[in-house]
Amino acid sequence: MTLIEVKNVSKQFGGLAALTDVSFVLNKGEILGLIGPNGAGKTTMFNIVNGFYPPTKGDVFLKGQRVSHLKPHTLCKLGVARTFQVVRPLQRMTTLDNVITSAFIRTKSKSHAEEIAIEILKFTGLYDDRMVISKGLPLGKRKRLEIARALATHPEILLLDESFAGLNPTEINDQIQIVKKIRTEKEITILIIEHHMKVIMSISDRIVVLNYGQKIAEGTPAEIGHNPIVIEAYLGEEHSA
């Protein structure tokens, strides 16, 4: 079943074409990787799917409903949650309060929100840090807090924007386990942007490659790994021969 369909989306910032005619679909239950060199338009794509920007041309559909004109908070209610590339915790709140805040989207009562938050914190392994002011968490945990916060909104689709960048090898392995668990235990569909090739190759079911705002390839990790156009985009022409 198709959850999100991105149809011929273009986005221009003044004269700069950040995305040109990009289309792809996100199916229920899969992990779809979105990769591409710096400046390829990955985060712009996220911002469009998430509702921060309206597309200049084209549309985004969520379960067949056109959502490209909706605001982020409405999309969040419809089940699309995201994390940010540059972590943005609610700095002067504790880890627990951060997660409680996002749990309030599905409940009015504080005790229920707290219940949800504690469950999520245990799930992401942040329970022991629940009383820490989030500004004081190390980067690895702040990245995980981003995921925890998104999970607390009970999403159907999770958009992860470089949740692995800047982590050490141990943290990366922990994070991979969490992402896999999110799919298997919570049955959440994931769209993920990642630069770390080992990670993206090992967790994605399919990969979409962007370069200069255009989709240049789509396929399974194995196909993408052998695609000459992709190798060219990443390594330059001479290496592809």
Binding site: H73, R88, L90, T101, F104, I105, A113, R149
Partner: peptide, 26 residues
């Protein structure tokens, strides 16, 4: 301040864009 409203107010103060993406109609 001890209810949902209070949490939302503080979330908006700390980061309006993050709050918006967490489903808060800022």
């Amino acid at each position: 301040m001890e209810s949902k409203l209070g949490y939302y107010f503080v979330a908006i103060r700390e980061d309006q864009d993050a709050a918006e993406s967490l489903g808060i109609n800022t």
